[in-house]
């Protein structure tokens, strides 16, 4: 589904390489995790995949079902089925969460040539999805992420994911700032979306999220490259020994 080949990226503003040749292949229906120390390029990878400004791709490719992601506008990537759950979801005062969700859903439908969802169907859908994430009507009415706690913001990200039904979900440190209960809620939300057609790339510092969202494959990223890949046991190894051993191994 997602094919990343020798992806090289530098910051637009300064001549600093961040990704130095990332190779990653995620097949449909699988869950991959990327772990790595601070500054290894994990978040950059998520931003480059979703089309954030400020980065220049200097080499390599990234395709989603064969389509060149890097050529698309962010909204086109979303319509093609890519979703990024933000590490720091953005507050948008004055725009109601419902308005935001409906606008996004209809924009994607329009891009795919589908008719807009009716107000009634939308309401039914959003209530159903919100309930599973314990997001109440009050939270839906409030402006996007404004006054939300860290946990509420992350649940709101998962709600968006559930509503938009992307095929390729990238979760950028979704566990950061979550207590145990909130993490379980978020993980349950993600797990409910796991299915044959849908793939996940879970970026995290810690193994604990992976207790809840069980990955098929774990990658270790360091200095802009994936230096090791393996099964879930790799995450446990990191938890026990830190990154130092792995980094030493590669050098």
């Amino acid at each position: 589904m997602l094919e990343i080949k020798n992806l090289q990226v530098k910051l637009e503003e300064e001549d600093k390489a961040i990704l130095k040749g990332v190779d990653l292949s995620i097949e449909a229906g699988s869950v991959h995790a990327i772990m790595g120390p601070n500054g290894s390029g994990k978040s950059t990878l998520s931003y480059v995949l979703s089309g954030r400004d400020g980065y220049t791709v200097t080499g390599g490719s990234a395709t989603l079902d064969g389509e060149d992601l890097l050529e698309m506008e962010p909204e086109e990537r979303a319509a093609a089925g890519l979703f990024l759950a933000f590490q720091y979801p953005v507050e948008i005062p004055g725009v109601g969460n419902m308005t935001f969700l409906r606008t996004a859903l209809n924009a994607q439908r329009k891009a795919r040539g589908e008719p807009e969802i009716s107000a009634g169907d939308f309401l039914k859908l959003v209530r159903e999805k919100a309930k599973a994430l314990q997001i109440d009507a009050e939270m839906l009415k409030r402006p996007v992420n404004v006054g939300f706690s860290g946990g509420e913001k992350k649940r709101n990200e998962i709600l968006q994911m559930a509503m938009l039904e992307p095929r390729m979900c990238v979760l950028d440190e979704t566990d950061s700032g979550l207590d145990v209960d909130a993490m379980r809620l978020v993980a349950d939300g993600v797990n409910a979306l796991r299915g044959a057609g849908r793939s996940f790339l879970v970026i995290t510092h810690y193994q604990r999220l992976l207790d809840h969202i069980k990955p098929d494959i774990v990658h270790i990223m360091a200095d802009g490259r994936i230096i090791k890949s393996g099964g879930p046991e790799l995450a446990l190894e990191v938890e026990r020994n830190g990154y130092a051993d792995l980094l030493a191994e590669v050098v």
Binding site: S50, G51, R52, D53, E73, P74, E75, R77, A78, A79, F83, L84, F86, P89, V90, I92, F100, T103, A104, L105, A107, Q108, A111, Q160, L164
Partner: peptide, 9 residues
């Protein structure tokens, strides 16, 4: 970017 990443033009 946040809004666009959700598919909004």
């Amino acid at each position: 970017f946040y809004l666009r990443s959700r598919g909004i033009e």
